[in-house]
Amino acid sequence: MKAKNKVGIYGYGAYIPRYIIENSSIAQVWGKLSTPIKSKTFPSYDEDSLTIAYEACRIAIESSGAPKDRVGAIYVGSESKPYAVKPSGTVLIDALGLSRRTLSADFEFACKAGTEAIQAISGLVSSGMIDFGIAVGTDTSQGRPGDELEYTAAAGGAAVIISRASEGVLAEIEASTSYVSDTPDFWRRSGEKYPRHLYRFTGEPAYFHHITTSVKMFFEEYGFSPKDFTYAIFHQPNSKFPQRVARMLGFTIDQIKPGLLSPIIGNTYSGATLVGLAATLDVAKPGDRILLASFGSGAGSDTFSFLVTDLIEERRAKPPLRAFLERVVTKDYSTYVRYRGKLML
């Protein structure tokens, strides 16, 4: 997909909570010998996907100087909305002081709701229906105690402000491709607290099939190949999958390094690829080309190409993601279950 009028990223911001728990602390409780990652973030008792989105949006707006009164849409991608029914976007609009003459909705497509929001907003901006739009990917995902997901389900989020390229963007969105199919690898029914998954089925037929297909379709359609990209970000449910899919597609570890955060922060679900993009933009130089491929269970993958411009230097996120990484403190399992509300009160 290519926008008729060129669009791009005007500003961005990312946020992760201060608290992390080491996988070894979880493994100790459940008697597991091996773990998928080193550590993961979890939200403080007073955080949720909305407050994470607020931080990411505020950083994006303040760092870029985006005009609040010209924001015409805010779409929040999340699978851990604070309310089942009641939009997060309206709270964000009033908390951020955005214009109320605005489109707002919550998007859900497991872990790719945030990139889906980028595409929807790109269309609105490109068509001229709106001037600026904010796409957010944010989650405080939950893993059932003792389940495999408990080791990786983490919290974090990022926001990107999209405008027409003519407004001056820090990265052009060159093109995108989406690929989806009915693949039940992971789900959560209404009213249920924790998601279910089909173990190894989440790998080959779900994650790998959709990402590789989406990226290959993208390459074919727009004539790109891995060597055209300085950096790449793949959805990162653990540390293994993104590295393996990168190799399968012909990317090197150096290309994915700046955006590969899952070993330390875990899987931030809807936030994952966008937090990776933010960390990559934090270090990118003008002229760098970045590939991003998200994955959402159920299932689908969106692939994007971003071309970084000269404006990156003045629009970089303040604070950058590493400032949040530098302030983390490690907590034990008991604090984790208390803050995550896993105790019966």
Partner: peptide, 11 residues
């Protein structure tokens, strides 16, 4: 005396 900044949280 420490420097603080405002953020939005659940009360």
């Amino acid at each position: 005396g420490m420097e603080l900044e405002a953020t939005l949280r659940r009360l």
